[in-house]
Simulated assay, not measured.
Amino acid sequence: MQLVFDGHNDVLLRLWTHERDGNDPVAEFLNGTTSGHIDGPRARQGGLAGGLCAIYVPSGDLVFADPDQNGHYETPLAAPLDRLPSLGVATEMAAIALRLDKAGAWRLCRTVKDIRHAMASGVFAAVMHMEGCEAIGPDLSALEVFHAAGLRSVGPVWSRHNVFGHGVPFAFPMSPDTAPGLTHAGFELVRECNRLGIMIDLSHITEKGFWDVAKTTDQPLVATHSNVHALTPVARNLTDKQLDAIRESKGLIGLNYATAMLRSDGRSEGDTPIRDMIRHINYLVDRVGIDSVALGSDFDGATIPDEIGDAAGNQKLIAALRDVGYGEEDRRKLASENWLRILASAWGEKNA
């Protein structure tokens, strides 16, 4: 079995939501559940050995638009969130991550050495990520607190605007060049993440924001869960020019399993075949090279192909990669090693 380290999931959102309904998140992860995509038993079954686990504050007002007769749609951006309620939700999710670590349900990893040790021990290697930095605030004081708690990756924005920058809408077909980029506070956030050794995720940000980060950061460019705009022209996907910049920085793109970002018609439908995933991987490998492509499933945050189903189905993608000619070393890079290389670079680790 090929172990997988995944660049993005929303399991903390699911556990937080279920805890509000009276469930125990530690028991749910340890013992398994029939809902969502990730828990301990299904992760072990599918070789999902770890991943970036997002702290994401949901937008209650977001209603996804239905496609018109041509299959086109544009969901209006969610309204900006207030900082203090966002900080409360983010703190609750971080607390769940810490409780899972204390209970031995997973290992909250702060270094690549931690990740490798957890994977070798058969313990889920969780890295705390923040998807949209509404909880941080422009003075950035909370960033150091979350960093001390284990935060090692941030996306400045989700698909809504905030004090740090502008997000892209869920829309098809549409360019990612939809709004301005980073604000003054956003540039300061990038610089402080560089200082602390926190990876910056370019998923969800506008194209102008992408270039603002590119000219500011001292890290490789990373989009944890995005696909190819030339194949599926949703606003969330990356243009060839953006892919070329990631290649030049020796960065990384994590393949998003979300069907709306894989299909040529941009629809969110479960009957999307694995071959659409392979189509995007092949394009990415041809464009940026095998060392800059990995997986970023968006488990627990998106509609994924029925053939995959949940974390237990990850090896079906690995098998499909083998069947189309990816050798053992390339599969290992795509499944985990490319992520560990990029995290070591962003975190300033050597010999990791």
Rank of each mutant, 00 (worst) to 15 (best):
V4P: 02
D6L: 04
G7K: 09
R14N: 12
W16T: 00
H18Q: 14
R20M: 12
D21W: 01
G22Q: 06
A27C: 05
T33F: 05
T33M: 02
T34F: 08
G46N: 07
G47F: 09
G47I: 10
A49V: 12
G51A: 10
C53V: 14
L77P: 06
P80E: 13
T91E: 12
A94I: 01
R99P: 09
R99D: 12
K102C: 00
G104T: 08
C109N: 03
R110Y: 00
R110P: 01
A118C: 10
G122W: 03
V123F: 00
A126Q: 14
H129W: 07
P138H: 12
D139A: 05
E144M: 08
F146Q: 05
A149N: 09
V154L: 10
G155A: 14
V157K: 02
V157M: 05
V163P: 03
F170M: 02
F170L: 14
P173E: 01
M174E: 07
S175V: 03
A185M: 03
F187V: 11
E188I: 00
R191A: 15
G197K: 14
I198L: 05
M199Q: 13
M199G: 13
M199K: 01
T206A: 06
D212W: 07
D212T: 09
V222E: 03
T224L: 00
H229Q: 04
T232D: 06
D240P: 08
Q242Y: 03
I246T: 10
G251E: 02
N256W: 01
T259N: 12
M261G: 14
G270D: 05
P273N: 09
I274C: 05
H280R: 06
T303R: 02
I304E: 00
P305E: 12
I308A: 02
I308N: 03
D310C: 15
Q315R: 09
Q315G: 11
Q315E: 13
R322Q: 15
R322T: 13
V324E: 06
G327D: 15
E328V: 08
K333I: 06
K333A: 10
L334H: 07
S336K: 08
N338L: 07
L340C: 12
I342F: 03
L343H: 13
L343Q: 13
K350F: 07
N351L: 07
